[in-house]
Every structure is written in C-alpha cells, then in structure tokens.
Design a protein around this nucleic acid. Sequence first.
DNA 1: TTAAAAGTGGGTGGAAGTGGGGAATTTCAC
DNA 2: GTGAAATTCCCCACTTCCACCCACTTTTAA
Lengths: 144, 144
Amino acid sequence: MFIGEYSHTIDPKKRLALPSKFRGELGSKVVVTRGLDNCLFVYPMKVWEEIATKLGTLPVGEAGTRSFIRVMLAGAADIELDSQGRILIPEYLKKDGGLSKDVTIVGLFNRLEIWDSKEWNIYKKQAEKNTGEIAEELGKLGVY
Amino acid sequence: MFIGEYSHTIDPKKRLALPSKFRGELGSKVVVTRGLDNCLFVYPMKVWEEIATKLGTLPVGEAGTRSFIRVMLAGAADIELDSQGRILIPEYLKKDGGLSKDVTIVGLFNRLEIWDSKEWNIYKKQAEKNTGEIAEELGKLGVY
DNA sequence: TTAAAAGTGGGTGGAAGTGGGGAATTTCAC
DNA sequence: GTGAAATTCCCCACTTCCACCCACTTTTAA
C-alpha cells in the first residue's frame, strides 16, 4: 500500500526519482497517465493492467465515459525505471500535469500521484478546510 | 488498550521515543497520520489496515470524500520503530501537527495522539471547562 | 544499594536524492 | 542518404539524510 508525501525534484533532463520506499511495490515498470485535478497518476504495471481491462469493458454509450477512457488511455505512457529508480517524464505529460521543477509525490493506496508542489499545497489547504466536518461524519460510520 | 499521558521530547534529529508501556501493543511498525484538532494520530499497523480498508470502501462519488481520502492517505506515514523504540517524525507531519521539542503522548483506546505540550495543556483546560456539561450528556446515555 | 530499564543525545557508514558528462539512438532538415 | 541537433540511456560524483550503534543520565524495581 502506498501512503505518504515526498518532496522531490525533476532535474534538467526531466528525470524524477521515485521514493525508495515505493520501489519494491512498484516494480521496475510503471504506467504514467494524466490524472484528475491537474496531476499525474503512476501505477505499477500489474495494477495498470487491471485498470486497462476494466476500462475496456466499460459501456461506451455515454459521451462522458468515452472521453474519460480517451484521456486515461491516450495519455498513458509505460516507463521503465533506470538503474537509480528514476523515471523519465515525457514532455507532454510534464506539461499537462503543470509540473515545474519541484514536485510532490503522494502515495494513495494502489497508485502514486505527482503534483507540482505549489499546486499540492494549495489543494491540501483547500481540502483541509472541510476535513473536520467530514471526519465527524466518518466517525459516525465507524471509520475511526 | 492505550491509556495515559506521557511527556517526551523530539530530539534534534526528529526522533521521538514512544512510551515503553505501549510498545508491546504497538508492534514494530506503526502508521502516523494527521489527526483532528491539530495533533498526530499513531496507529498500530493492524489497526491502520482496518481503517485503510474502510476508507477504500467508501463511496468515492462525493468530491468531499475524495479529498478527505487524499488528505488522510497522503498525510499518513508508515514508520518502523528503531532498536530503542523511537520513530522518526517526517518534517511535514511535524509541521502540520504544530510540534516543537516538547510533546505529550496520549493513549486513547486503539491509538496514540501526539500533541505539542503547550497545545495539549491549553486544550485540556478548555476541555475541563466543558466537562460538567459533557458529564450530564453522558449521564443521559447511561455511561456513568 | 545495586541492577535493570527507559529516555535522551551523538558519531558514523551507507543509502538516497540530485546533477552532469558522454555514448548511443532517434529525429529532422537539407 | 547524410549530417546536425535533440533525446535518451548508462555511468560516475557530490551532498544530504537516515539507520545503526554506542554512551550517558534518570527512573524504576528488586
């Protein structure tokens, strides 16, 4: 399970070191795609294969579903980690993710998310405003 | 079950010794997360896995719930105790928890809470003011 | 009083993150 | 088809951080 938050940097050659804690579970091949809320998703190859299968079996009748599938699949890049555990971010993904030099890598269950650090801090503050209320609701559900 | 209140210190290397009384029940791996009311939660790995599972099964339809899950998971860190029963507090959690050198570790049923000692004393005084009312409420529920 | 355990602090080797040189490959223009 | 430029991969080097070990002091227990 991926959890936690790590500050890393994309070097001038567009390489990004993934946190060493994640490497065992990630394996040597990952898939990077456009994510939601202006960030990138990183899946271990195994997890991606499951997702791709599910996407393939979704009903293509609705326009929303079609565009979602297009964005996910078209933007996907399978990337191999180099000998030092770094991935090379394709230019179009770097651009779409709004990434500059400083990024934050976030662990979320079965995937990682790559955020521009500034954007991440903004998103986090926004989200924390509502955390208290939501937490109380969750408490009623027995999550805590 | 974790009970009690302990004053400990975070050393210059951001290490924090957990009370030895708790170590047996904690095991060697714990998960530290942002808590409510500006403190940190510490769960034994087993307890955390239950919580994570519940979070994973929550309906992700609502945007508020999604962002809550993001904050909870991103703010979580799985940490291994060193040979002397200490944990290394990540900088971002130390900051989010408003922790300085002196902290108070509180046992609460199935988790610990880490408070900045000053904040804890303030909170405690505040809470004691309300104790009377709360006691009445509890009395109605038949707790006392 | 003595011994053991707990909390705190520090030194150090190795790992992790970062950056850059240079070779191999690809892309593009001409 | 050929040469030039850009890209990507493979090393290597530097710096910072952390896991491991050891030491000291205080508290607890016998």
